[in-house]
């Protein structure tokens, strides 16, 4: 028996909107630790890793580890039917073939349940080792989204370079080139507007903007995004989910053959 009650149901709505276009089907894994997912996009270039820790739920019951295969587009459709202030409860029986999403309005005057069929998914799981990254950039998530969107009107790839001067986002396309440099800025009044650059070694990596733009659909989840880079390693773009966990995107770089 699985029963997870999330008072801030909008978090789950935002998570689904962030990943449904990147990944079609995925297994949600439930354990005593929490509700998690690891899935790659169909071309196996990008990976989504989600963790919602059990402590973040108002009620978390998971009698035994359970893996539930879901079509993310269909799950997103169902969660779209929840109000932004609704409490969302996810329920499933051990060995059952469906999952129920229950939506309660804050004053309990409307209660809805949506049942969705589960599916068997043969997913490939990657072992991602803990890595020391050469450069970690923390910046406003809306700024990161703006940069990725702007650069994708010029070119298809972005070169992210971190030096002691700052972080540079560059692209080139048929019509010309673009460079955007952000300097460390910790002097702002609000911490969510800060840009913080931790650099061990200068690093420069190239990524497909199509994926970066897809990751920025998670912008409503967090005011800040963390971009972790190491030469010849996938970049990690992380959105923290308030006191519950994270949504991380991994993207393989483009490298010289």
């Amino acid at each position: 028996m699985l029963e997870l009650r999330l008072v801030q149901g909008s978090l789950l709505k935002k998570v689904m909107e962030s990943i449904k276009d990147l990944v079609n089907d995925a297994n949600f894994d439930c354990s005593a630790t929490g509700f998690s997912l690891q899935a790659m996009d169909s071309s196996h270039v990008a990976l989504v890793s989600l963790l919602l820790r059990s402590e973040g739920f108002e009620h978390y019951r998971c009698d035994r580890n359970l893996s539930m295969g879901m079509n993310l587009g269909n799950m997103a459709k169902m969660l779209k039917c929840a109000g932004n202030d609704d409490i969302v409860t996810v329920k499933a029986d051990d060995g059952g073939d469906c999952v129920t999403f229950m939506f309660e309005s804050p004053n309990q005057d409307k209660i809805a349940d949506f049942e969705m069929k589960l599916m068997d998914i043969d997913s490939e799981h990657l072992g991602i080792p803990e890595a020391e990254y050469e450069a970690i950039v923390r910046m406003p998530s809306a700024e990161f989204a703006r940069i990725c969107k702007d650069l994708s009107t010029i070119g298809d790839t972005v070169v992210i370079s971190v030096t002691k001067e700052g972080v540079k986002f560059s692209t080139r396309g048929d019509i010309g080139t673009a460079n955007i440099v952000l300097r460390q800025n910790t002097s702002v009044d609000k911490p969510e507007e800060a840009t913080i650059i931790e650099m061990e070694t200068p690093v420069s990596l190239t990524f497909a903007l199509r994926y970066m733009n897809s990751f920025t659909k998670a912008t409503p989840l967090a005011s800040q995004v963390t971009v972790s880079l190491s030469s010849e390693l996938p970049v990690v773009v992380e959105y923290k989910i308030a006191e519950m966990g994270y949504l991380r995107f991994y993207l393989a770089p483009k490298i010289e053959e």
Binding site: S43, V45, L126, G127, A208, E232, P234, K254, E256
Partner: peptide
């Protein structure tokens, strides 16, 4: 020219 490698080129399957 630069080539897009899959994630499997960087991480092991479990």
């Amino acid at each position: 020219s630069q080539k897009q490698f899959p994630l499997k080129a960087f991480y092991a399957m479990t």
